[in-house]
């Protein structure tokens, strides 16, 4: 399963959903006298439709930073993140903010480690929001959100409550549901099972398999080996890109 850097050039099949090339990132900490923290450089890999790629390497290797650069959440110092966009290809590194927002609505979704709660908005509505943004009718979006929360074993009494007071595991399930509910062609997963028990990990693994079957490309960070081996087709070792 573990392969070296895959190459789009040698791939015989269709263009990849995601092509990352020579990505570089460093942080300059002005509050600490301009301390410069190199993170990664020369990051290059492809992800094809229906494929799940795991980013491997120890903590601090830059795995999360790579995901965040792909999602447009972190700036990109150098390189390109080319994302299939219908018949075209968009470079996230060059895209204007509006363009990135559009890509997030239609092309890529991101499951972060921690849920960013919105005051007064119930779990069901948090999960349904990406579908509403796509234009799915509210009743349908809510029904799908409920089905997904049910599948993730979130007790029904919590559905209408704002997740601010939920436990870490409950929040993470809300987060997973919100990430998986849409029909984007690229899904970025940052430790989606970190706070979950075995039963719910299995649900997430099944959800990943379904996404792959639908032709979705996935890039994930999985600390837990079992999940990684179950979910990922191959691992890209991030230590090779350390700056």
């Amino acid at each position: 399963m573990i392969t070296a850097l895959s190459s789009a050039i040698s791939a015989p099949h269709a263009d990849p959903v995601l092509a990352v090339r020579d990505l570089a990132k460093s942080f300059t900490l002005h509050l600490q006298g301009g301390l410069k923290l190199p993170v990664v450089s020369g990051v290059s890999f492809d992800v094809a439709a229906g494929e799940c790629v795991a980013l491997g390497g120890p903590s601090g290797a830059g795995k999360s930073s790579i995901l965040k650069m792909i999602f447009g959440n972190y700036r990109i110092d150098a390189g390109s993140v080319r994302l299939a966009d219908a018949d075209a290809v968009v470079d996230v590194a060059q895209a204007a903010p509006r363009e990135i927002l559009r890509l997030r609505q239609h092309r890529m979704a991101y499951v972060s480690q921690f849920l960013r709660v919105i005051p007064r908005v119930g779990a069901r509505e948090v999960v349904a929001e990406p579908l509403l943004a796509e234009g799915v009718p509210a009743s349908q979006a809510i029904a799908r959100a409920e089905a997904l929360l049910d599948r993730l074993n979130l007790p029904e009494r919590l559905w209408r409550l704002p997740p601010a007071t939920f436990s870490g595991g409950e929040q993470q399930r809300v987060n997973v549901a919100r990430g998986f509910i849409g029909s984007q062609s690229l899904l970025l997963l940052d430790e989606p099972t970190a706070s979950l028990d075995a039963a719910n990990r299995a649900v997430v693994i099944a959800l990943i398999a379904e996404k792959k079957a639908q032709g979705c490309a996935l890039v994930g960070i999985f600390h837990d080996t079992e999940t990684r081996e179950a979910a990922a087709d191959r691992v890209v070792d991030v230590t090779r890109f350390s700056a």
């Binding site: 942080f27 965040k68 447009g72 959440n73 972190y74 700036r75 903010p97 990135i100 927002l101």
Partner: peptide
């Protein structure tokens, strides 16, 4: 200036 989450997170 830029994307809100980008400017605030990075």
């Amino acid at each position: 200036h830029g994307l809100t989450d980008q400017v605030l997170d990075d």
